[in-house]
Design a protein around this nucleic acid. Structure first.
Length: 121
DNA sequence: CGTCTGACGCACG
DNA sequence: GCGTGCGCCAGAC
């Protein structure tokens, strides 16, 4: 049954589109880890399309399966997308629920928690 | 078609 | 280390 859902998902979403590649990589980010827009862009093969990654994630709210967009921050570990989660503190709370410490709108120990899709995928 | 818009990242001063 | 400028490119008009 899960297999059928997966097939339906692939039929409903052109799986080779830029957006879908972003979603697919984002879904692989482990709980309690984070990555950056640029890292995802590089993994796709468009290192200069980091802005598009953000654009894609902005539209990921109603996408299934769910996309953990809150685990994507900018290259400095800054929560630049926090205003797109309904409330301004939703993104922070989602990350803290996974054990990530946020201070001054920034991920503490970002270098340690950073998950590189190129290396890990 | 042209133009504008960004959840970015880099180069430079 | 910080501010500024610019290239990036898929959608929405």
């Amino acid at each position: 049954m899960r297999h059928l859902n997966f097939i339906t998902f692939n039929l409903m979403n052109s799986s080779d589109s830029f957006f879908e590649q972003v979603y697919e990589i984002t879904r692989h980010i482990p709980v309690g880890r984070v990555t950056s827009f640029g890292a995802i862009a590089r993994c796709i093969g468009s290192p200069q399309s980091a802005r598009m990654v953000g654009w894609a994630l902005n539209k990921s709210g109603n996408v299934l399966p769910p996309v953990p967009a809150h685990r994507v921050v900018n290259r400095n570990g800054l929560l630049t997308g926090k205003h797109h989660f309904g409330g301004s503190e939703i993104m922070k709370e989602l990350l803290e629920n996974e054990g990530i410490i946020i201070s001054e709108n920034q991920v503490v120990d970002f270098g340690k928690l950073f998950w590189d899709p190129m290396k890990e995928l």
